[in-house]
């Protein structure tokens, strides 16, 4: 797969010219390979990797795997992915530096399992692999020579805005990478809108026939019920995209306002849940 190899480029190279350090560090230093297929690595995964690396004295190799390198949108997705990945890698690197952890990052393309296999063989001292949400553990585990951990955590939103500085850094790329652009909503509005108008036109131009069947009762009762289900899907999708296309969407803090936070509803004697991220191994 040509595209896979061609798409591989270490971010650190074009960021601050630390060329060659990657190879050296991977040979000398025991490393944790952290893999994500998203532009932004989830914070709990980042924190988990940093904590473990700090404790064990390992280095970190972060891989941002672009799983759709040939996505047909004129390279727009690839550009956004690269922008988001370099932003996330910079943040990750900054944190690693603060804690004195050796850090490398790179962008890969292709399947997550293949990328892990490739990286593990290139850097011989990968002790274990930590995968972000969105990657199936089985897929990576079947190809990885090292044990694979996935990180379990409650909700990314709960920890997302802990540090305001990180919030600012994330936001710019987050919007760029969110993909659900206004354009997509406008397209959906038109598609579902046309379908909804078509359905309404169909019903009201044949209303006499429809009414005579729909009011027959008995087993015909299923007709109006099925009709409203169909309308609720088509027209519901239309109205949803309509408001999104107008820019009226849910609050960005929706995760923080999640009902789970209200501890008062829980009986007092129940123990508080441990919300820290924890790992699950492929055994």
């Amino acid at each position: 797969m040509q595209g896979v190899v061609a798409g591989e480029k270490p971010i650190s190279e074009h960021q601050d010219g630390e060329r060659g350090e990657r190879g050296a560090s991977c040979k000398d230093q025991r490393t944790i390979l952290v893999v994500t297929r998203k532009g932004h690595m989830d914070e709990p995964v980042m924190d988990y990797a940093l904590n473990v690396a700090d404790r064990l004295g390992y280095g970190i190799l972060a891989a941002y795997v672009n799983t759709l390198p040939k996505f047909r949108d004129g390279g727009e997705r690839n550009r956004r992915f690269a922008a988001a990945a370099s932003e996330s890698a910079a943040l990750f690197k900054d944190r690693a530096r603060q804690r004195g952890i050796l850090f490398e990052s790179g962008e890969e393309a292709g399947k997550a399992g293949d990328a892990v296999s490739r990286l593990c063989h290139a850097a011989k001292r990968v002790e274990f692999v930590v995968i972000d949400k969105g990657i199936r553990r089985e897929e990576v585990a079947s190809k990885s020579p090292a044990p694979v951990f996935s990180v379990i955590y409650a909700k990314p939103e709960l920890t997302r805005r802990k540090e305001s500085l990180c919030g600012q850094q994330r936001n710019i790329g987050e919007y760029a990478m969110s993909g659900k652009s206004r354009k997509r909503h406008v397209a959906r509005t038109f598609i579902f809108g046309a379908m909804a108008i078509g359905l309404y036109a169909a019903v009201f131009s044949n209303s006499a026939a429809i009414m005579s069947y729909f009011t027959k009762g008995g087993a015909y009762a299923l007709l109006p019920v099925a009709t409203v289900f169909l309308f609720s899907y088509i027209h519901g999708s239309f109205t949803s995209s309509f408001w999104s296309a107008l820019g009226i969407e849910n609050s960005k803090t929706v995760g923080q306002k999640a009902p789970r936070k209200s501890g008062e509803a829980v009986t007092a004697d129940r123990a508080r849940k441990d919300a820290r991220p924890r790992a699950q191994v492929n055994a």
Partner: peptide
């Protein structure tokens, strides 16, 4: 609807 009372319009 079983009694045919729903005016779908």
């Amino acid at each position: 609807a079983y009694y045919g009372m729903v005016d779908i319009r």
